[in-house]
Amino acid sequence: MKHGRLRALAALLGFALLAATAPISITGQLLAYQNGYVFFTTGDGFRLAPDVRILDDATKKPALETPKPRLYARATFDDTGHVVELDLSRKPLPVGPLPDAAEQYAVAASTPFPNPELAPKPASATGGVTETFSGKLVLVTITVQVPADTPFGSEVYITTDTSGWDPKAIAMDRIDALHFRVTRRIASGTILHYLYTRGSLQTEERAENGIDRTPREITLNDADLRAVKDVVYAWADLGIPGGIQAPQPNTIPTPFNPAPFPNLPSGIPTPHPR
């Protein structure tokens, strides 16, 4: 039993010694290769050894192309912090912050100091929630209450800046006489500008005061779910009782496009005075 423990301890020490002598290497995406330095997209620059080897990462044979931006690479350092081998790859290699062991080799003329603009906002400044915007997909459910005079057969859509203001960008489902709803996955960090329509820009919503309204805006953070509730007060094409409706292009009657209802049957009774 005692001998077994000693053997395990010896093996652990052996691994530790081997690890201590193994060369340090990092992976990342190349930003630049110039002036005796190689730069990764972390912004870090590393000094190149005069006899640096440029290899293909997959075959470990001399690379057929020169290091350039967008390529992925594995950099191996010697004890002095020089890059002695650079293995290039078109396939993505892990990209991330520098490991501590390699950070010491990054060359910078000035002493780094913290940037107060990058300090996380205190939770107290964001309503008790630390607001982050990682770009992950967030489930967003939008529910809208439509005006009481909305025709029951109407479809309701959302038009967004991300769709180039396509009036039918996002179709909604009716959930009762006055409400429509839709759920979509949208990347956090998105600032979405949007308005509601009934299928065209002529049937777009208007503000409560009857004027075109500025687009609604939501900023999506990393919350797992986001519920948005809106109210549409009026539609641009509705409102005048017995009156005129906003025309659609090319639908105005002309002598050559005369009739909304040319095929009415005869015999419809007309009123007469007594």
Binding site: Q34, N35, Y37, F39, G43, G45, V107, A108, A109, S110, T111, P112, F113, P114, N115, L118
Partner: peptide, 24 residues
């Protein structure tokens, strides 16, 4: 990249006064 690489930040279009070494 002068004698050594560095990290400079310019604020509000002021290219005459770089902030040298500030975290990015």
């Amino acid at each position: 990249v002068l004698e050594k690489p560095d990290r400079w930040t310019y604020e509000n279009g002021d290219f005459e006064h770089p902030i040298k070494g500030r975290q990015m």
